[in-house]
Design a protein around this nucleic acid. Structure first.
Lengths: 200, 200
DNA sequence: TAGAAACTACCAAACGTTTGGTAGGCCACA
DNA sequence: TGTGGCCTACCAAACGTTTGGTAGTTTCTA
């Protein structure tokens, strides 16, 4: 919660927690696992944190803010809706590619947070979903997009983007930017060929 | 694994496990929790199962087969690719709406399976992903769809469909069929308005 | 009267967390 | 230039509880 400068061992611990929580899940990762990962004794972890759940919160909070920081400027810009949406997808996938494990933990371990913290996190998530819904809304309002339910469409797009973290492999032939282009084309132009546009 | 007719209490146990595993996660659900949910003592659970993991496997296996049984006939039919894709999305969302908890467990708890069982499940998942990729491939091949990478598009569509389980609420104003229509419109026609088709 | 269904009692291990303590570095003060 | 006080970093051991699972026995029911 309180910023405390850079504490190397604490960062190392967080990094180990991200990896283990993604691999085994929060509840199946023991303090023993975490201690071994950073090379200290189980009890010594409490020199750095007050409780196991603090690690989970820090990871999820950080991940959520990465997404908000990446997409909020895009949503606030003055480009056409289609261009905003394209850039938002690109921004999301870029974060997702660089911080895959964090984002998987964010999505999967919401249920492992305490009620208070879960509510705070859900509020941030709602804000994030609102960005995508808002861009679709804007496109529909200005007539750039066809009539569509912005909430449903926003969730569909965000779903595809969120799922990306579960299958993307950086060692594959396509980059996150490649996938972002393919995604945006799909959402904006659709699959069905139309001779009047994009000519082939 | 071996089919054994209908065993009411065993079904009750499975149903309780689905609910608890979705709510709290597999590792945070104890045998005590399960026993209380079906009104027997902890040790008595082992009259119905050999190990806790059997419950997880049965749930995931059942969920995966529901999806395959729903979509495989669609993919094997002789309709145009766009129509197949529309029906596949409809079929997936129908299963997802009726068996939400099962599908969430299927997606979230893969990591909690033993290595052997996880591999078997991944094989089934690959088969399922192949159905969607195949439909896109077909559309591109026949020229019904524009040029696109079938694997990427298949995963994007499936991602949106899989994410559906995390936010769909049956008590909401829109049915799974409504969402399926909106999803299919998005994937097939895209968002950007085109005067030459669907005229408005 | 056999088998299914459930009980009680128990196990060894693991859990997250707390405790009391130590080693070494830094800094003010005499 | 020592030295006492405080800090960070960590250890080893123990805390009480819970874990998944087993064994042997009793109760219900067809």
């Amino acid at each position: 919660m309180a910023e405390a400068g850079i504490r190397p061992k604490h960062e190392e611990l967080l990094a180990a927690a991200v990896r283990l929580f993604r691999q085994k899940g929060y509840h199946d990762t023991s303090m023993q696992d975490l201690a071994e990962a950073v090379g200290i004794q189980r009890g010594s972890l409490y020199h750095y944190i007050e409780a196991k759940e603090d690690l989970l919160w820090d990871i999820m909070d950080r991940a959520m803010r990465r997404l908000l920081d990446a997409v909020e400027p895009v949503a606030a810009s003055s480009a056409p809706a289609s261009e905003k949406l394209r850039r938002a997808v690109q921004a999301h996938l870029a974060v997702a590619a660089e911080h895959r494990d964090e984002l998987v933990v964010l999505h999967v371990e919401l249920k492992s947070l305490s009620a208070r913290r879960r509510e705070r996190m859900l509020a941030l998530r709602d804000r994030y979903e609102g960005l995508f819904r808002g861009m679709v809304e804007e496109g529909v309002r200005t007539g750039e997009f066809r009539a569509a339910d912005p909430k449903t469409v926003g969730l569909a797009i965000l779903g595809a983007c969120n799922w990306f973290t579960t299958w993307f492999r950086p060692e594959g032939p396509l980059s996150a930017a490649d996938f972002a282009r393919a995604f945006a084309d799909l959402f904006l132009e659709g699959l069905v060929r139309s001779p009047q546009r994009q000519g082939g």
